[in-house]
Computed example of a mutant assay.
Amino acid sequence: MKRRTLIIGGIGLAGMVAVGWLGWRESSRRAPQANRAVRPMAAVEPDPQRFFAARLPDLLGGEQPMSQWQGQPLVVNFWATWCPPCVKEIPDLNRLAAKHTGANFLGVAIDTEDNVRKFVVNVPIDYHSVVAGHQGIELVRALGNTAGGLPFTVLFRPDGTIFEVIMGMVDPDSLDQQIGRLVASSA
């Protein structure tokens, strides 16, 4: 009796595996690949002036015009408290901000003021910070990040044009060199 139960159970299990595999194969033929858009996305020409036209709240309750940072090299890092790679790169950005005094650093949080205030108690940010909330997604898209992914870092020349764009977490050594070139080209 036990042998018959094992044989019938084995046949049933093999049948379920076969049906699952056939279903998966058929559905994956019809579904678009994850790394390919269903409709091609139109290339967006970055518009840095939309960023410099913005006014964003700081953590002290004031409102900061982004235009105040035009005229000097600027490193802008878009981040969020809920984004692990964003949080991981903050100490590297703190070190680079201390090293490269010829450039301004600005953190733009795509989050709520309350979340950011609580966050900086435990993870200090040693450079200027503002909170963009949902408006931040529109700003990163205006700067060419159509997916709106974080972290997102943009290096600006003093004239407000884009020097370099970094999608995803920064490589501190590479960013160090890029900032050095930005500052040298701005002197």
Rank of each mutant, 00 (worst) to 15 (best):
K88R: 15
P40W: 11
V131H: 00
C83A: 10
T153W: 03
G148H: 00
Q177W: 07
R39W: 10
A54C: 13
V140M: 11
R181N: 07
G61F: 09
D47Y: 06
Q72E: 12
G136F: 06
Q68K: 15
W24I: 11
A14N: 06
G160R: 05
L93W: 03
T81K: 03
Q177K: 10
T146M: 14
M169Y: 11
H134Y: 14
Q177R: 09
V183R: 03
S129E: 04
M169A: 12
G168T: 03
D171R: 04
L93G: 02
V19E: 00
L60I: 10
I90T: 01
N77M: 03
V165T: 15
A43C: 08
G20L: 10
A34T: 05
K118Q: 13
K88V: 15
V120N: 01
G12I: 11
K99C: 11
F163L: 06
G133T: 02
V116S: 01
R181F: 07
R25M: 06
S28C: 08
F78H: 02
L56I: 05
A34I: 11
I110N: 02
V17M: 14
A34L: 14
V170D: 00
A34N: 07
T146Y: 11
T146S: 15
F78C: 12
Q70G: 07
I162F: 02
W69D: 01
L175N: 03
G9E: 00
M169G: 05
F52Y: 13
I166Y: 09
F78T: 01
C83T: 04
R4W: 15
E113T: 08
N122P: 03
